[in-house]
Amino acid sequence: MKGLMKKDISLLLVNRKLYLMVLALALFYLAMGEAMEGIFVPYITYIMLMLGLNTIAYDDADRGMAFLLTLPVSKTSYLREKYAFCLLISSAGWAVSSILLIVIKTAGGNAWKQTITEFGISLVVYLLLCMFLMFLLIPIQLKYGSENSRIALFGVVLVTVGVFMLIYKVSGIDVDGMDRWITSFIDRNAWMLAVAVVVLLALVGVISFRVSAGILEKKEY
């Protein structure tokens, strides 16, 4: 796994100028005002995840996967490394951007509209959402490749939104009432919900890994 990690870190460094641009852009947005604070951390975390996923495209380019699988690694260890690598660099992006946001807010004297707990929860939610996205995207990228996976993701988002819209239209749900009910439910069952989310995410992770392993197993090079 260490060898593959070194390879992916080396491939990540190919785009180092891009990272500086992304960071500069993010900082610029942040300087624009408080409204942009909410997207700073998820933006950086998402970009880092995409860069991690991009190493699959590098592996695939010029039939590179065929050669990689002749190295002393199995398909399973290749997958393990890929999940670990994507998790590692998106978490690093999340941690760095969170620290930067706290430093900038504190140094700039920006007013904290949220409590520390609310702020902390929002940061953790960003990371969990990013992990969920990772579990969704790795099998899609392995199955459809870099270009087609974006179309596939667009399709998934479109279908999901469509399903929710349909449920909303057909059932005639009272959105405001539901929002109040959800908020109250979260307040009453915060810990139970937190545990449920972590368990659910772990389950999604296991399913994602198994699906990815099935995709790699069927593939011929």
Binding site: G3, K7, Y58, R63, G64, L71, P72, V73, Y221
Partner: peptide, 23 residues
């Protein structure tokens, strides 16, 4: 393999580091 190998975006010194960890 005739049509496959390490990524074209790697350097020999990086490949040496990778091989060192794999073999």
């Amino acid at each position: 393999l005739s049509e496959s190998g390490f990524s074209n975006y790697l350097k020999v010194k990086q490949i040496a580091g990778i091989l060192e960890s794999l073999y």
